[in-house]
């Protein structure tokens, strides 16, 4: 084979293959074009029909599927109430919490303003305790507040703020003045929350937690030192509740001596 012959052979092989390949591709492209065109042609005719059907379908959902969906949902919710609550709780909880946080912030700003200007509780309690214990006021501030202790209990008439009875292990502060201040703060705060049946239940001041428990014509203020947490609050709430019912407090509201005795009796072991 000469050089030329060799070259021709190679060319033939290559070119033949090329040609076959090209025609193959051409065929494929033609088929594609055809498909696309056909689809286009079809869709012009079919699309409106589908749209109509879809519209009908959507229109009919409430009638056809609605009851079924509602029924299913109802059943689902009923059968998995816990799960639903669980799912909704964080959302609602967050909303409420955010609202409360906001309100509390406003409130505490207002109260702080008021307290700074008017109700000198810290000064008041600390002075009294300092006098009673002989400790310096700054020592008292620094004193560890580890063990929870009821310092003072006051039964106070709502509105007037008049003391109906009082009991304290160590005399903390003048109960008449504390009761007046608490009642004033309570009125102020409860006015701020215009809603009815809202009662101020707790005031934190310095080292003291003042737990307020409301009854219809009176409320009980418990001055607590040390840690006051939800568990303690619960316990305290229950014991005051049972105190008030067991001892029929409502019947002796106007008898200071009797009331004081009951108070002392009930809480001497607290």
């Amino acid at each position: 084979m000469t050089q030329d012959e060799k070259l021709k052979l190679i060319k033939d092989i290559l070119l033949t293959d090329d040609r076959v390949f090209v025609s193959h591709i051409e065929q494929k492209i033609a088929k594609l074009e055809e498909t696309i065109n056909q689809k286009k042609a079809l869709s012009v005719k079919v699309d409106p029909i589908i749209n109509d059907k879809l519209d009908d379908f959507i229109k009919d959902i409430p009638a056809t599927l609605g009851p079924t969906i509602t029924e299913t949902l109802k059943k689902e919710i009923k059968n998995s109430q816990d799960a639903v609550v669980e799912a909704l709780f964080p959302i609602i909880g967050k909303m409420i919490k955010r609202y409360i946080q906001h309100e509390m912030k406003l409130l505490s700003e207002r109260i702080n303003h008021q307290l700074n200007n008017t109700f000198s509780f810290s000064w008041f309690f600390r002075k009294a305790k300092s006098k009673a214990t002989g400790l310096s006021e700054s020592d008292l501030i620094l004193q560890e507040q580890s063990n929870t202790k009821i310092e003072q209990l006051i039964i106070i008439e709502k509105g007037s703020g008049v003391v109906l009875a009082e009991y304290s292990k160590t005399k903390m502060a003048d109960e008449d003045m504390v009761a007046g201040m608490l009642t004033a703060i309570k009125s102020f705060v409860e006015d701020a929350f215009i809603k009815e049946d809202q009662n101020l239940q707790y005031i934190e001041y310095d080292l003291y937690h003042i737990h307020l428990q409301n009854f219809s014509s009176y409320y009980i203020a418990v001055v607590v030192s040390g840690a006051y947490n939800i568990i303690y609050k619960d316990k305290l709430e229950n014991s005051i509740l049972s105190f008030s019912t067991k001892h029929k407090i409502a019947d002796v509201l106007n008898n200071k001596t009797a009331l004081t005795l009951k108070l002392k009796d009930f809480f001497k072991n607290e």
């Binding site: 303003h113 008021q114 200007n117 008017t118 109700f119 703020g161 003048d174 008449d176 003045m177 007046g180 201040m181 004033a184 102020f188």
Partner: peptide, 9 residues
């Protein structure tokens, strides 16, 4: 100026 309430006895 008195703000709020002041209580004495």
């Amino acid at each position: 100026v008195t703000i709020g309430v002041h209580i004495s006895k």
